[in-house]
Amino acid sequence: MSFAVETQLLFRRKMLELMRQPVWIIAGLSSPLLYLALFAPLLQALAGGPGFAGKSVLDVFVPGIIVLMAFGSGMGAGWVTIIEVDTGVLERLTVSPASRFALLLGTVLRDVVWLIIPALLVIFVAIPLGFHPNPAGTVVLLAIASLITAMVSAISGALGIKLRQIGSLAAVVTGLQLPLMLLSGILLPLSLAPSWMVVLAHIDPMYYAVEASRVLANGSIVNGTVVTAFGALGVLTALSLWWATGVYRKALA
């Protein structure tokens, strides 16, 4: 059996699992729309101010929301992995000849798809409200967001195997999410932040993604910020997938 077929089978399994959980679907779709409905109006007062000069508030806010969604889409992987360890599913799949990387990718690809669908919904809903996306820039933006989801999904899944307790995993993942998100300038541009925070933001990979996402939403694709984001996130995602595959390989020893 080829690696591609194994991955496709395991991806399909994960998609079916998602489709059978309407609560996940509703939550996945409603959270970003709630940000648009309940948070974006608060920013209207900042229009024209620092960080928003010459732009619609949504041109700054929506790309940030998509990066936020990218992080959130991958976070849940570890929860399900723990359930699969507890029910013996992972053990059964590990005894099969399926590649460990395919086992990991089934979940990662599902999470990426489950990022792109709600992200497109947010973009289409935001357009009539004043968001001005560039089509090519949006495609590249979704590619960067997909790298974040893949990285977070792989790390979350591997942490699930290592920690094996939902409470511990939740503490680690949400404990990482908050500082990474706040330092990235997702909700408000870092041009509003004190200089020490701007310096600190440069060690946060999410910062590069958010900066690039705003440049891309404005249609500037060939840009140093975009290249930096792709480079940093590409390397980090590759490292995360490599590490997580190793964890799957030793999963149940």
């Binding site: 399994r13 699992e17 059978r20 959980q21 029910t87 013996g88 053990e91 059964r92 799949l93 005894v95």
Partner: peptide, 13 residues
């Protein structure tokens, strides 16, 4: 073939 103590059936499927 291997059937572990935990079983391994995918319960939502």
């Amino acid at each position: 073939g291997y059937v572990g103590q935990l079983g391994g059936a995918d319960l939502p499927a």
